[in-house]
Design a protein around this nucleic acid. Structure first.
Length: 585
RNA sequence: GCGCGGGUAGCUCAAUUGGAUAGAGCGUCGGUCUCCGAAGCCGAAGGUUGUGGGUUCAAUUCCCGCCCCGCGCACCA
């Protein structure tokens, strides 16, 4: 790709002129405006600054050493020291020709493949998946697709909540209140009912709480009856997970729930104690501040009533039970041992950022060498809000179940499809409604910057105009329709790029790879969303301005080719976000 | 109180992490189908980027103060 060629050669030139320069800061990026050419570099100005020399003079010296005559017009030095790169028309034509010949699709796999574990979704056993799971699931799935597309080795791991204190109450409910018929009809709803009923009883009756605790202890001790009930609850929940993930097109390489690590937890605590990282406190075992960080940076300290006091991370409760910190440490160790990854990515709600900060620090203190060899990243995200600016709920104030949400998305879309396309059969309409409805939910979720909250709106996500999944999917159908109607393209006619709309489309296609890489590295799927929306707009303008099937050769074949490439990039890009396309809608 | 996010057009959000004249969508107003799919396209209006300083060729972005909003702050995850 031209981007990496230009960047590599620019680095060579910089190294020749300034041998001491840090070459990683030398970066080339797509030009912000077409009048600046195809690519630009702003890096020389900061290098000049750190060297205390005139940036334009430095730029002139470097440009004199720069060998790009085979692909670029003479490099322009603009303003205080920008470099502007304009591709030769033949280079652009060559790039498109190669793409049409199947040699690339405007991106290239990484030269340095990493292995990455991605932890996302993490639903709980015996509870319905709800709207809160969209974000982790959608963002996590998009990220794993992105990293894989670029040639990295990815392991996706669904860390299911299949262990914990809630099972005491669930067991009591199962043994005393279970309605077999209801369980048969809707197992999740029945288990949810059991939990709620026991929970309210326990709030009023301490005796009930005691019973629940006893059931939990029995479960943890391996009591056969409780164990088999627990396994049945997991099995029933897994059916729900599989249904939802099937509809979302999400799959995991491994599903290792919290319970998988039970046998490791005592060892983790023992190891942390003997390493001197943890100590006993008020009957519990906890990790305290080691005083090496400034109080403000230290997650194990908190400012209260005028002084800094300890807020240790608990790894064993005073009753002997373990916390999720302990489980997360055991999980981390297991992942390192099993996959030896370069990076582990946790796609979890931003509200848990303090937990991950603590987790990573505890691990560093516990196993410094291992921690040194892996990058641990908490990829957080904001909440989904309703129209009222408060967390998104149903009218009656309940959490919105994910299955219901997907149903509604499909139903609402079906109404639109039935109205717009009465000529299609019902089954075709339903298939379109499925693809568009699910796509709309995902797009709305992936489009905003992940760390900010966003407002959930049926009307906005299903709107047929504007920055929505239906708009992109529609542009895809237009492009692919032309390609279908065109029959075989005459490759011998060559690629001709004369119209402004053609050039704008090609320039944008060319930036696909740059965008994929940025989106993956920053773990920001919205970069790809923005890119694809712009691509769809560029295509639409091109389609409006340039007749395809009705124009003389060689423009005809050339433009069919552009439609084909736009369609392929749109489809691949959307698929990388976990969104499907249809040929008709 | 302390920490972490956030505050950008009437509304909902971007801004490739310090770049060139801060961009989209919705809404408003206007134009555009005898012509490859109008679920489209074109145009107009709309901004002191919460606020006050600072750093520099350049600040929505980095630093400091202040004002609002959300979230978190040992034995739930």
């Amino acid at each position: 790709m031209f981007h990496s060629v230009i960047e590599a050669r620019l680095r060579l030139a910089v190294a020749a002129v300034v041998p001491t320069a840090n070459l990683t800061v030398v970066q080339v990026r797509p030009a912000t405006e077409s009048r600046f050419g195809e690519f630009q570099s702003n890096s020389l100005m900061s290098i000049a600054r750190s060297l205390g020399i005139n940036p334009r003079q430095l730029a002139a010296d470097i440009v004199a050493r720069l060998e790009l005559g085979d692909i670029c017009a003479p490099v322009e030095i603009a303003g205080p020291g920008f470099l502007n790169f304009r591709l030769l028309p033949a280079a652009l034509v060559g790039l498109v020709t190669d793409a049409l010949a199947g040699q690339h699709l405007f991106f290239e796999p990484t030269a340095r493949s990493k292995s990455i574990v991605i932890d996302f979704s993490s639903p709980n056993v015996a509870k319905p998946m709800h709207v809160g799971h969209i974000r982790s699931t959608g963002i996590g799935d998009a990220l794993q697709r992105l990293w894989r597309l670029l040639g990295h080795r990815v392991v996706t791991d669904n860390h299911i909540g299949d262990w914990g204190t809630q099972f005491g109450k669930l067991l009591v409910g199962w043994k005393t209140l279970l309605d077999r018929v209801a369980l048969e009809a809707d197992p999740i709803a029945e288990m949810e009912r059991l939990y709620r009923e026991v929970n309210t009883r326990c709030d009023a009756d301490p005796l009930c709480l005691d019973v629940a605790r006893r059931e939990l202890v029995l479960l943890q001790a391996g009591d056969p009856e409780n164990l088999s009930i627990w396994q049945e609850m997991i099995r029933l929940s897994q059916v729900q997970f599989d249904t939802i993930y099937g509809r979302l097109g999400v799959r995991f390489d491994v599903v290792l729930g919290e319970s998988f690590y039970n046998s490791e937890l005592a060892g983790v605590v023992g190891s942390l104690l003997s390493a001197g990282v943890a100590r006993e406190s008020e009957g519990a075992v906890a990790v305290f501040s080691d005083g090496k960080l400034a109080p403000k940076e230290d997650p194990f300290l908190i400012h209260k009533e005028g002084e800094w006091v300890d807020i240790p991370a608990l790894i064993r409760k005073s009753d002997g039970g373990f916390n999720y910190m302990t489980t997360d440490l055991a999980t981390l160790v297991h992942r390192l041992k099993t996959w030896n990854p370069d990076e582990i990515i946790y796609v979890v709600d931003d509200r848990q950022s303090a937990h991950f900060k603590s987790l990573f620090l505890v691990f560093e203190r516990w196993q410094p060498e291992a921690a040194n060899g892996v990058i641990l990243r908490h990829i957080g995200f904001g909440k989904i809000l309703g129209d009222d600016g408060k967390p998104f709920k149903t009218r009656s104030g309940d959490t919105v179940k994910l299955g219901d949400l997907l149903n509604e998305a499909e139903e609402r879309t079906l109404k639109v499809v039935a109205e717009k396309r009465p000529d299609l059969s019902l089954s075709e309409q339903k298939e379109i409604a499925r693809v568009v409805g699910i796509g709309a939910v995902k797009w709305q979720d992936l489009l905003p910057n992940r760390q900010s909250d966003y407002v959930f709106s049926w009307d906005k996500m299903l709107a047929l105009q504007g920055n929505t999944a239906p708009y992109l999917q529609y542009q895809y159908t237009r492009a692919s329709k032309v390609v279908r109607d065109a029959g075989d393209r005459d490759a011998d006619q060559g690629v001709v790029l004369t119209e402004a709309a053609e050039l704008a489309l090609v320039r944008h296609l060319m930036n696909f790879g740059f965008t994929l890489q940025a989106a993956a590295e920053e773990c920001r799927p919205n970069y790809l969303c923005n890119y694809l929306y712009e691509l769809a707009s560029h295509f639409s303008r091109f389609y409006e301005a340039c007749p395809v099937l009705k124009v003389e050769e060689p423009a005809r074949s050339s433009r069919i080719g552009l439609c084909e490439l736009a369609a392929r990039v749109l489809k691949l890009g959307l698929n990388t976000l976990g969104i499907e396309v249809t040929d008709r809608m």
